[in-house]
Design a protein around this nucleic acid. Structure first.
Lengths: 203, 203
DNA sequence: TGTACATCAGTGAACGCGCGTTCACTGATGTAC
DNA sequence: TGTACATCAGTGAACGCGCGTTCACTGATGTAC
């Protein structure tokens, strides 16, 4: 029991990791944010987590398992981001939150909308997605802007398209030239204004 | 010279392929459309093209070379799709064309906005992107809807966000439930209507 | 409080695979004279 | 019209690599009695 155990496991680290599942997921978000989902490998994640290469399979089975878990987490986090803490928001502010979520959780966001990368029929994923969708549905009717008296579902769709378009284009750097230093939040709000700020008569 | 040459090259096929570059690019669009960009490999493309595994490298160097060429082609095709044949369109109809392009060229579209997959600084790519962007810029000012008297660049941005959001969400199947059998083109036009059809005074 | 046993998390060696890359080569095509 | 040569496109064997997967194992933890 001295500190010098010259062979395999570094003396300080215990045999059991303790929270390998979480560690692997976090490592995955880092890899994806840095190098994209294509660069992900179970062995690479094990290396980052400091465990043997076969360990992650205990928790996730395979790579799709990791990405599915990430998508589940993504939908949950998105739901929380859209809902709270301040519930009294309008549809446009909800779009801003959506865009912010994509910017602060690029890996989750990327995986959530890439069904080719995960298992879209996974029960946990279906549940998480549905939970977030329901959360939106209940809110969105009342969120439609006062001045808009048409189909609320259509307004919600348009808001989603605008926010998702902004999030993906911004995330790929495609808006860099167009924004040219301007505040992304403010610019998105302006664009959303075209959708929801109806000028009064004559204006 | 009989038809029976039992060894390596099948007798019918000539030594030189003739149009390997094109064939490889087409094969790449098929692979990406079917299985995503992650499934792409030079060896796989060679197999599809019916050539030896080292042949594609002659034309593209490496995988990023293939994807860069695909992105170049994508920007050119997008430019053509947006411009012609009928030049007298409004901003909304241009959005419809953008969405249609994404649907009919999913592989090109996917690669164009994934700079992690290609070489975004490649001169040919920069040129093609700029050509398409210029084509848009010259058109877009005059395309801003009559009833909209604000910043035309902002209107163009909003139109782009809406179209890009629709294209990507539709492409990933995320709109399936929301569309529920409705015509995508028509639905997009409706959503774009919220952006550009301003009701007269009083509603 | 102690012992026996089941369960779970992680190990590490081994395997086979598809990949990208290199390299000396060969077949085909074009061009100079 | 013919010959020599350069250039280009594609071949196929070889290599080393990182990967996923399997499997017998070991260390740690919890629970029954």
């Amino acid at each position: 029991m001295t500190d010098e155990t010259p062979t395999t496991p570094p003396p300080g680290r215990p045999y059991h990791h303790g929270d390998l599942r979480r560690t692997v997921l976090t490592a995955a978000t880092e890899v994806i944010a840095e190098q994209g989902p294509a660069a992900l490998s179970l062995r690479g994640l094990a290396r980052r987590a400091g465990v043997s290469h076969a360990a992650p399979a205990h928790h996730f089975g395979d790579k799709a398992g990791v990405l599915t878990a990430l998508a589940v987490e993504g939908y949950t986090l998105l739901g929380e981001a859209l809902a709270g803490p301040d519930a009294s928001v309008d549809l446009r502010e909800m779009g801003v939150r959506y865009v912010r979520f994509a910017a602060t959780h690029p890996a989750h966001f990327a995986v959530m909308f890439r069904p080719d990368l995960h298992r879209p029929d996974d029960p946990a994923l279906v549940a998480a997605r549905e939970r977030t969708a329901a959360l939106l549905r209940t809110g969105v009717g009342s969120l439609a802007p006062d001045r808009y008296d048409g189909d609320p579902a259509l307004a919600a769709l348009a808001a989603w398209l605008l926010a998702h378009g902004f999030a993906t284009l911004w995330g790929s750097g495609s808006l860099d030239r167009m924004l040219d230093g301007r505040d992304p939040d403010a610019t998105f709000r302006e664009a959303a204004g075209l959708l929801f700020d109806r000028p009064g008569p004559g204006g």
